[in-house]
Structure formats: C-alpha cells, structure tokens
Design a protein around this nucleic acid. Sequence first.
DNA 1: TTAATACCTAAACCTAACTTTATGTCAAGG
DNA 2: CCTTGACATAAAGTTAGGTTTAGGTATTAA
Lengths: 144, 144
Amino acid sequence: MYTIGQVSEMFNIPISTLRYYDKEGFFPNLKRVSGIRRFNKNDIEALKVIECLKESGLKLKDIKQFIKWATKGSSTYKNRKELFEKRKKVVAQEIKNLQKTLNILEYKCWYYDKAIKDGTEDKIYKMLPNKLPTKIQKLYDSFH
Amino acid sequence: MYTIGQVSEMFNIPISTLRYYDKEGFFPNLKRVSGIRRFNKNDIEALKVIECLKESGLKLKDIKQFIKWATKGSSTYKNRKELFEKRKKVVAQEIKNLQKTLNILEYKCWYYDKAIKDGTEDKIYKMLPNKLPTKIQKLYDSFH
DNA sequence: TTAATACCTAAACCTAACTTTATGTCAAGG
DNA sequence: CCTTGACATAAAGTTAGGTTTAGGTATTAA
C-alpha cells in the first residue's frame, strides 16, 4: 500500500528511523516487492501503536514486549496491564522529582533576582536559613 | 585534606566519577601531593555545588559554564539567573508532558483492567470514543 | 543516454555521563 | 622480599535511540 517514503511523510518520521524500527523487528509481517518495503494497513497500525506507546514513555524494548503480548491475544491482558502499572509508578515518581527540581530552580531564580537588585549575595546569606520571605522559605525547605 | 577515596565515601560518589569531574575541569585548583589528589575545603564546596546543580537537572556543560560565571563574581548574576530561568521553563514543560503521559497510562490501565474483567477488548471499542465513564472520558480527551 | 529520484544495505558515527580495563607507581605490613 | 591496597593514567567500552555515510540498484523523465 505505501512505500517507506510515503509513511515517513504521513507520520513525519525520518526514513532512517522507520528502517531502524524494521530492523528491530517492529513490523513482523512487513512485505517486500523486489526488495522494496510495502507498508500495509497492519504495518501502519503497528506504527501507530509504537507512537502511542512511545508517548507514554515506554522504551523500545518494552514496546517490543508489548507487541509480542498483543499478538498473543486476550491471555496477556494481565501482562499488558502490569506493564502500564509499572510505568505509571515510574512516571508519577518522575513528576515528583521534577517538581522538586522546579522548586530548586524557583529558589535559584529568586536568589539571583535578589542578588541583582542588591548587587551582592551577602544579604541573602544573612537571611539564611530562617529569615527568608514565607513563600521562598517554603521552596527552600522543600529541598533541604 | 582528603584523598579521592575519602571524598568518594563522604559523598557516595564513585572514584571514577570524581576523576572524571577532575578531568573535565570541575576542580580548577585541585592540589596534588606527589601526583595524588588532595581535596581541600574549596574542592569540597565545588563538589557540593555540582551536586546541587545536578539536582536541578542541569547538564555538566551548563554547570561548567555556571562555575566559570560564579568565579567571575557579581557581574555575572544576570547570566546565572538566565541559566536558571531557561532551565525552569524546560522543566515546567517536561512536567506538563509527563502529566499527559500519566493520563495516557491511567487510561491504559483502566482499559486493560476492563478488558480483564470483560475477557475481551471488544466491549471497549463499542464505547469509543463517546460512551466512556466520565472520568475516563476526561483522560481520553486529554491526549486525543 | 544520462541524470535525477527513490529505494536498498552494512557499518560507522552520535550524545552524555560515566565505567571499565590495562598498566603502572608507591608505601606499609607481615 | 613480597604482596596488598590505594592511588595514578590513557583509552576503550557502555547505553539508547537513532543518524550518517558509502556504496549499490531500479525506475523514470528529459
């Protein structure tokens, strides 16, 4: 149905990436006509699944596993759910970590903003760690 | 004051990593006694700064730049603030992306939970995209 | 007929932040 | 005297997820 160039355009994915996915076995039934790849509906579906799972932050390795399970049918619903549950926990933790990072960064921005206004960092050191503005104190506490 | 092995223990950082940081120039004034590294207070401080900036998600390259600015004194407050402002924006965006990812994952978990209960995915397909439970509908909409 | 275009492969290259390996020095302890 | 342990170096290896390169085939348009 489609050549690799057409698929590349449709999905806005580099041709080299599609070939790479193919080499990695993500299109198990991809046909060839005199050596040239022909992507049919199934292959396109597979690609959509890859894109979707990538969006949920899965590694290619996990996606490969998922595809294996998916082709095995309803007996693997549980495995697939567990895969997503695990990933969900990791992502939730990542968000927490980034939230902490963001607190650090907000503190740093406040810090240098004040240093610019004061012309020095010395005044801030005299405020630490107990005389900061309430809002900043909260940030500061959140990572100390 | 300290050997590399002691610093490694104190900070729980592999020796190889400390040597790597040194090679990369993160301890500009690190002393040697007959070839052997001696970490003094300043070097320890530098390491603390590295650790802290790493926690805020900066790349080593940016940390290097930051240290250069820091040694230049108060004339570089603005540069340093901009560095953190930039990083803040990136992290805020990352959190948003991960939040979307989490929505996808929560939907997937619901999906397979239901598939397990029903014994099939077919029922879900008949609900799509308009007859999902309200809560799930919200998740679904958030990434479609 | 020749040139452009689209496809093919294998293999090398890329990035970041380390880690591992191979080899060597040096001091202390048994 | 010899071995163990802590230190040193340079250079190669690791990881993921591709990208780039070099070289080749096949069709089509001028």
